[in-house]
Simulated assay, not measured.
Amino acid sequence: MPDTTDADGLTVGQVSTRLGVTVRALHHWDEIGLARPSLRTAAGYRLYTAGDLERLHRIVVYRELGLGLDRIQAVLDDPAADVPGALRAQRAQVAERIERLQQLGAGLDRMIDAHERGLLLTAEQQAEVFGARWNPDWPAQARRRYGDTAQWLQYAERSASRSPEEWQAVADAMAGLERALGDAMDAGVAPGSPEANRLVERHREVFASYFPLTRQMQVCLGRKFEADPGFAAHYDGIRPGLATWFRRIIDAGARAHGIDPDTATWQ
C-alpha cells in the first residue's frame, strides 16, 4: 500500500511521483470520473487526499492485472460488484495469454534452430526421409556456405514449420520429378519442346518447397547440376548424362522466356 501519511493536499505531480504513473494518465482518469481529486486550492487547483491516493493505488493494481478502466470503475464503484469473480476471469485470460506466449516462444525456438541448423530432423529421420545416401552434415555445410543469403532465410522459415511427414512429401515430389526427367531423356525429349518445358516448370514448382526459384536462378542451378561433382554424380546416377541434359532443358526453357543462359545471374 502507498504511504498515505500526511497525504492530504498532494498535487498531481506529487501523486505521479508517488504512484509511478504519468500526469497524463491522472488527468485522463480525472476526466472520465475514475479518480477525481477531492480538494481545491483557493486558486482552483485540484489536490488529492489520502482517500484519493488509496483509490488511485487500487486503480494501479487492477490496471497492472490487466483490467480495463471501465471494469475497474465498476469494481470500485458498484457495491454489488463481484470482485473475486472479476479477478478470476482476469486470471483465466492471463493463463490463456501465458499459453499463447509459451507457444510463441516454442515457435521462436524452432525458427532459431531452423536458421542455425536448416533441418529440424534427427540424423535417423533424415536418412528415412531422404534415403541412405543422404549425408546429415549437408545442412550444416549449406548453412556455412549460404547462411547469409535471403534464400537460406526463406528455406529456414519453411523448415521451422515443416513436420517429418511434410518433408517426406517434399522428398517424394523431388524423387518423382527426377524419375520423370530420366524417363524423358530416355524417350528422346528435346530441349525446348513443350514436354521439356513442362518438366522445367515442374522443377521450379517442386524446388519452391525450399525457396522461391526464379528462372535465372534455375539457370544457375542447372550449371551447378552439371559442373559440381556431387550434383553431377547424383543426376548421372539416375541416368548417365542426365546432369547435362537437365542443364540443357533448363537453358532452353529460359530462352523461351527471353533469358540468355550465358549471362543469367542469381537473381
Rank of each mutant, 00 (worst) to 15 (best):
A42K: 13
H257E: 14
P139K: 09
R100A: 14
E205K: 08
L121Y: 14
A80L: 08
A232D: 00
R58S: 08
V21M: 12
I250M: 03
G147N: 04
T4I: 15
A160S: 13
Q14A: 15
G20V: 13
Q103D: 08
V94G: 02
R46V: 04
L120W: 00
P261D: 00
Q103L: 10
D6M: 04
I259R: 11
E165A: 14
D172I: 05
P79I: 04
V23Q: 10
T263Y: 00
L19K: 15
A114M: 10
I259P: 14
A196H: 03
T22I: 12
A140R: 12
Q125W: 04
G176Y: 09
D186P: 00
R117E: 13
L119P: 00
H28D: 15
L213R: 08
V61R: 11
I259E: 03
S16K: 13
I98Q: 07
V94W: 00
L153A: 11
A127S: 09
T214C: 05
R36I: 15
L39W: 07
D6T: 13
L69C: 02
T49Q: 03
D148T: 04
F231S: 11
L34P: 14
W138G: 11
L119I: 06
G131Y: 03
V94A: 01
G33L: 10
A254R: 08
S38F: 07
S159P: 03
V15K: 15
V206S: 01
W29T: 11
W138V: 12
V83N: 06
R133D: 15
E157D: 09
M217C: 08
A187I: 13
E205Q: 03
T149G: 06
W152R: 06
A89W: 02
T265W: 02
L53N: 05
F246W: 12
I259A: 05
A92Y: 01
E96A: 13
R158Y: 05
L121V: 13
H115S: 09
C220I: 13
Q154W: 01
G20Q: 12
V12M: 14
E226Y: 02
W245Q: 03
P84Q: 04
A243C: 02
R204E: 10
Q126S: 10
R40K: 11
A50S: 13
L242D: 02
T265M: 05
H203W: 09
L101Y: 10
P164D: 15
R179E: 13
L153P: 06
G230A: 07
I250Q: 07
R18S: 05
V219D: 00
R162Q: 09
E31I: 06
A232P: 07
Y210C: 09
A252F: 00
G253F: 03
R179M: 08
I32Y: 00
D183T: 03
S163C: 06
D228A: 12
Q141F: 08
G33M: 08
I238H: 01
V189C: 05
A123G: 01
A232M: 05
Q125Y: 06
L39C: 11
Y235N: 03
D137H: 14
